[in-house]
Design a protein around this nucleic acid. Structure first.
Lengths: 169, 169
DNA sequence: GCAATATACTAGGACATCCAACGGTTGGTA
DNA sequence: TACCAACCGTTGGATGTCCTAGTATATTGC
């Protein structure tokens, strides 16, 4: 993005917190703010890589999810809960993926309420290629210390379980 | 949010990555995805707490930044670089904060190009109260293990420095 | 069968972000 | 001194996400 700052603004904010008598909350504040900023950096990278494929991160996530599903199809509702996004967001994403020919809607064979989203052949190809690009340009060079990644996964996993995201190990 | 999932979808995705021959990228993918999801959870909490104050996170960040600045005022550009957002986002945020009476624009005394953003008395009060609310309801009960917070700050700090966010310790 | 629930779509609005373009200002330089 | 490149903030337009309804349909429980 721009030029690097001469100082870490989050470290400065933490100091400000401590100086104002919020010593107990200073470190969590810094951690939360760092998460926000890190997400921003990662999202920018991901969207940059996905742009040539005409995909956004939200659409890519749906595409990737479908590519791992049996038959490459899932009920809308299932996608909504697995991706933890609003049902209307799925509707929106499916609309655009369908316009791009990567996905197709079809009625559920037994439950007349639910509609299935299904990968097209094109969609499967797009999923493969965009995943390869992300692996090469983002995940394969994430910028996290290799020994830090497991720590990160554990810490964030604990947090998410604690936040009621999922149940289990 | 909704009901907790019976399984961790990120752990499942990681397994899928490994099963498809992307073993090297599986862990970084899981870490990146976990960051995304954690940010989503935290942002939802923060916006929930800020809603009664008529603030969004973007606007709160600007308000908090101003409250720590000398005289409670900063050039727009300075705010843009410190918060790492586009100048137009600052314009947008200042517009709304100004409409709410929390902030005021004033010309720079010597440089005719830059305009200063300045906290009003109301703005300073809002900053104090919203910060107190965030400290009590989010940062003070972040859900991170206390011993994990320092790890998190270090890991994400390394990442951000590596990503060119800032220079220094 | 009937009522309560569940699913998905639509319409509308709020919000943040990015981009290109513009007018005003500044400061270095020919 | 006069000029010009660089900088600053704003504008307008476009994208994208999320949310709140309201509606239609289908399912499930009583």
């Amino acid at each position: 993005m721009g030029t690097p700052l001469p100082r870490d603004p989050i470290a400065d904010a933490r100091r400000n917190w401590e100086d104002h008598g919020w010593a107990d909350e200073a470190a969590p504040m810094a951690a939360v703010t760092a998460i926000m900023r890190t997400q921003q950096i990662l999202l920018a990278r991901i969207e940059f890589v996905l742009k040539p494929f005409g995909l956004t991160f939200a659409r890519y996530e749906l595409l990737a999810l479908l590519s791992f599903a049996r038959n490459g199809s899932l009920p809308m509702k299932k996608a909504s809960t697995l991706l933890q996004v609003h049902p209307t967001s799925i509707t929106n994403a499916v609309d655009r993926l369908q316009d791009a020919g990567l996905v197709r809607r079809s009625p559920h064979p037994t439950d007349g309420r639910t509609t299935l989203v299904e990968l097209t052949a094109e969609g499967r190809t797009a999923a493969k290629r965009s995943t390869a690009a992300l692996n090469a340009e983002v995940f394969g060079a994430s910028g996290f210390g290799p020994e830090d990644i497991d720590q990160l996964i554990r810490i964030l996993g604990d947090f998410r379980r604690n936040a009621g995201d999922f149940i289990g190990p």
